[in-house]
Amino acid sequence: MSSDPRFHGVVKRLKQISKVYMVLSSKGGVGKSFISTLLSYYSSLKGVPTGLLDLDFTNPSTHIILGVRPEEVSYREEKGLEPFKIGELSYFSIISFTRDKPLVLKGEEARNVMREVLSIVNWTGIQKLFIDTPPGLSDEQLEAIYNLRGLVKPIVVSTPHRLSIQSVSRLVKILRDAGIGEIMLVENMGNGVLKAFAESEGLNYAGYVPFIETIDECIGSASKIENCHLRKYFEAILSKT
């Protein structure tokens, strides 16, 4: 456990949530934020009190997928910051403070902001939380994973592309070295071909989302997400979480 007292507050908050998932990708462009956002939104539509936390401070995009503007997002203080409600989904992103301007953080600055966000958001009443993270695996993400072992389960997102698969193998080794046992894999823009790869790596294969050219039909508003023709694939993945 980190000596930073904020992590003790983080553990206390997350222990109240039945299931917490940190969605990771070894490289950009695999659709990690798309997967995080639609999994959390469809979970909320099923009547499960669900939260979505965007920890990408430099290039957040979950609000674009959800169709909310930064100026629309606000938080009420009640034993911490209460998440913003989008339908039945509880949502938190730093865009409320940055107004969608890039926030370039490095080293200790990045770790401090991550610790602060994790410690101040009040997820009371939430049963399932999805945490969207920046691509790759930074020092602050490793710190969070290491300190929150046993509370947070990683969901790794990959495409069937060879470069993505090789990067996932490296990411899995890092997670294993950090003491993480159970790791889930979601295949994006695929057809199920990564199931054999997941088994060979000892990963829990949660399912796949196929590639479609009309992806804009599924993002940008609540109604688009609710009526997205990919919904059945996300619900199949949710049945494994």
Rank of each mutant, 00 (worst) to 15 (best):
S2P: 06
P5K: 15
G9H: 12
Q16K: 15
S18W: 04
V20K: 05
V23S: 12
S25M: 02
S26L: 05
K27E: 15
K27G: 04
K27L: 10
K27R: 15
V30W: 07
K32V: 01
T37Q: 03
L38P: 00
L38G: 01
L38K: 03
L39Y: 09
S40L: 03
S40Y: 02
S40R: 01
Y41H: 07
S44Q: 10
L45W: 07
V48R: 14
T50N: 09
G51D: 02
G51Y: 05
L55N: 07
D56F: 11
D56Y: 13
N59G: 15
P60K: 15
P60G: 11
I65H: 10
V68P: 15
R69Q: 13
E72M: 13
E72C: 09
S74I: 01
Y75E: 04
R76M: 11
E78W: 09
K79T: 08
G80C: 11
L81P: 13
K85I: 05
I94G: 05
I94E: 08
I94Y: 10
I94H: 11
I94T: 14
I95C: 13
P102V: 09
L103C: 12
L105R: 11
L105M: 12
K106P: 00
K106T: 10
E108A: 14
A110S: 13
A110N: 04
R111Y: 09
R115W: 05
E116M: 12
E116I: 14
S119V: 06
S119N: 12
I120G: 04
V121H: 01
V121D: 01
N122D: 12
W123R: 10
G125T: 09
K128Q: 14
F130N: 02
T133E: 04
L137S: 04
L142E: 14
E143I: 07
E143F: 04
I145S: 01
I145Q: 00
Y146P: 00
Y146N: 06
N147D: 14
R149H: 08
L151S: 05
V152E: 03
V152Y: 02
V152G: 04
V156T: 08
V157K: 02
V157E: 00
V157W: 01
V157F: 01
S158A: 15
S158T: 10
T159K: 02
T159I: 09
R162N: 12
S164K: 06
S164H: 05
I165T: 10
S167V: 03
R170P: 01
L171F: 10
V172A: 02
V172W: 00
D177M: 11
G179W: 08
G179D: 08
G179E: 05
G179I: 07
G181L: 06
V186G: 05
E187M: 01
E187V: 02
N188H: 09
N188Y: 03
M189T: 04
L194N: 07
L194H: 00
A196G: 03
E199L: 08
E201S: 01
G202T: 00
N204W: 00
A206P: 11
F211A: 10
I212E: 15
T214M: 06
I215G: 12
D216T: 11
E217P: 03
I219C: 09
G220D: 06
G220L: 08
G220W: 01
A222G: 12
I225Y: 01
C228N: 02
C228M: 05
C228G: 05
H229Q: 11
H229C: 09
E235W: 12
I237H: 00
L238V: 09
L238Q: 01
S239F: 12
K240P: 00
